[in-house]
């Protein structure tokens, strides 16, 4: 994923400083920096795992007792916990990744001067973008793996294909990281982050995370299908509940393209913003 921009360099017009493509070796140092910063805030890192788990216990187990069984992917009846758990996994992948690439990124980019310091070294703008995305994905992988293990312990992973739920979560994280990073390059101040919430909360609540698409009128359901989180939820749920079809490649490609395009846009905009 990190080398996807490597051949972008040749396309860069004269008068811009991006002649050397991002290198995987250099972007790793950006990840190292974040790991170093979190070493003193390990508890912040740790608590990131709890939120999806608490939702699983409250809405999944608590409200689930009032809901009973419902049809999962492929039409088989599943318990409500089993239905909601992969949805929460997908939503957590989105939330973590968006937080890292919008809020955390903005502080470093706008106020802390972190990237100005990095760009005075051999690191380039592409390395910064790839490094930050790489960090968001690394963190997301840890959370996703921990959550999947918890789901397995609660008996909520019905199929061995469920192992793929972790890479799927990374793919969801990648899609939203690209989106988040690109969007942040247009933000002027913290007030603009209201728009991030304005997008995240409805995605979290209405992307078939908590109830199936059949609860919507037909037209609305089609709109929901187009959202990236719905695609992610659909992918996770099918993998965990073992409904494997070729069509699962659609959400995978969709999310991958979103991430790739987002990082590309972000890199080129950052070159202009950080190196005027």
């Amino acid at each position: 994923m990190t080398e996807s921009l490597a051949d972008l360099a040749s396309a860069v017009p004269r008068g811009r400083i991006l002649p050397v493509g991002p290198s995987r070796r250099r972007s790793v140092h950006v990840i190292e920096r974040n790991a170093l910063a979190y070493r003193r805030m390990w508890y912040v890192f740790l608590t990131g795992f709890f939120e999806p788990l608490l939702y699983l216990l409250s809405i999944g187990v608590g409200v689930g007792a009032l809901v009973g069984r419902l049809p999962g992917p492929g039409g088989r009846l599943v318990t409500y916990e089993a239905f909601v758990a992969p949805g929460l996994l997908a939503a957590a992948a989105m939330n973590g990744s968006v937080f890292d690439t919008t809020f955390n990124f903005f502080v470093k980019y706008k106020y802390a001067g972190t990237y100005d310091a990095m760009l005075a070294t051999p690191l380039g703008v592409g390395d910064v973008a790839h490094g930050e995305v790489g960090w968001a994905l690394l963190r997301g992988t840890v959370y996703a793996a921990a959550f999947l293990l918890t789901m397995a312990a609660l008996g909520l992973v019905a199929s061995p294909w469920g192992v793929l739920a972790v890479p799927a979560a990374v793919l969801i994280g990648y899609g939203f990281a690209g989106l988040g990073l690109a969007a942040t390059t247009w933000m002027r101040s913290f007030v603009d982050f209201d728009f991030v919430n304005l997008a995240l909360v409805p995605l979290f609540l209405f992307s078939a995370t908590f109830f199936p698409l059949s609860r919507y009128p037909n037209g609305v359901a089609w709109g929901v299908r187009l959202t990236p989180l719905y695609q992610g939820v659909n992918l996770e749920r099918s993998l965990v509940l073992g409904d494997i079809r070729w069509t699962l490649l659609v959400p995978a490609v969709y999310l991958g393209a979103l991430g790739w395009g987002g990082v590309r846009v972000a890199s080129s905009r950052l070159a202009r913003l950080l190196q005027p």
Binding site: R26, R40, T121, L123
Partner: peptide
């Protein structure tokens, strides 16, 4: 324009505003 990273690897830069990593 062509060898930015190679040049920067041999420079030291002290900017006007300190951009130390406060974290």
């Amino acid at each position: 324009a062509l060898q930015g990273p190679a040049i920067r690897s041999r420079l030291g830069v002290v900017p006007q505003e300190d951009n130390l990593d406060t974290e």
